[in-house]
């Protein structure tokens, strides 16, 4: 039903978007928790910096990534000399670009849901002998789960649809960094591929709808559990 190139694009997209969400998960939750529960000087500045990827042109983000993580970038050079790792023009690089673009969406959703968790319940857990980690893992995060799921799906969708930062930082290499949007772009550029482009278009819509449905279902399930599973 699908051609090899189409399968390639789908699998690469899923791999890149999945890794992108994977690597931002822990820093994203940590950032969200700090913003939700801590008061500190310069919080407004940190908050605005976090939202930059949402408002900057993605190409700018891609270019900044190239400057810092590129082979001659200050961090990229160190990575290359210490570990022999190069990120630009690899799928890992695309995952970094997707993650950076998705980060603010994840943080925003998780932060809102952590803020909605009653600090009184966390205080009750502390009086029962739970330290900060146990409170986070057994009370705060489980109670924030619906928001966590929403944030993850939003971030996944954002990474999946990433174009500007990816093409700037990781380029458009077939079988390596050519994700669905990049493949679609390539097809649009070559005359006579309207039908193939339309197929990719439909594929993108199907994947998006599936992930939205999955997140709705998961969020509903976790909300029901929080309200008491055996409520009539």
């Amino acid at each position: 039903m699908l051609s090899d190139a189409e399968w390639d694009a789908i699998l690469i997209s899923l791999k890149i978007a999945g890794s992108a969400v994977g690597w931002i998960m822990i820093p994203g939750i940590a950032t969200a928790w700090i913003l939700a529960r801590k008061q500190f000087r310069g919080k407004v500045i940190v908050d605005s910096l976090l939202h930059l990827p949402l408002v900057l042109p993605p190409v700018v983000v891609g270019y900044l990534l190239l400057l810092s993580l590129g082979r001659n970038g200050w961090f990229g050079q160190w990575l290359d000399s210490q570990f022999g790792v190069t990120l630009p023009f690899t799928w890992q690089g695309a995952a970094i670009a997707g993650g950076v673009m998705a980060f603010p969406l994840l943080v925003r959703a998780v932060r809102l849901s952590i803020e909605a968790v009653d600090p009184g319940i966390e205080a009750a857990a502390r009086t029962l002998g739970a330290n900060r980690w146990r409170v986070l893992l057994t009370i705060t995060l489980p109670l924030a789960l619906p928001g966590l799921i929403t944030g993850t799906v939003l971030a996944f969708a954002r990474a999946l649809s990433e174009f500007g930062a990816t093409i700037t930082f990781a380029s458009n290499i077939p079988g390596e960094t050519r994700t669905l949007p990049l493949a679609l772009y390539t097809l649009i550029q070559s005359p006579g591929s309207e039908a193939a482009a339309a197929r990719l278009c439909v594929l993108s819509i199907v994947i998006a709808i599936l992930s939205l449905l999955a997140s709705e279902w998961l969020a509903k399930r976790s909300r029901r559990r929080l309200q008491g599973a055996d409520a009539p």
């Binding site: 009184g120 502390r126 009086t127 002998g129 330290n131 489980p142």
Partner: peptide, 20 residues
């Protein structure tokens, strides 16, 4: 001494049971 090291039981006005 942190709250979780005091070993005091606390019963709050609003019960504060863990809903999950």
């Amino acid at each position: 001494v942190a709250a979780h090291h005091r070993n005091f039981g606390v019963v709050f006005q609003d019960a504060r049971l863990f809903p999950h």
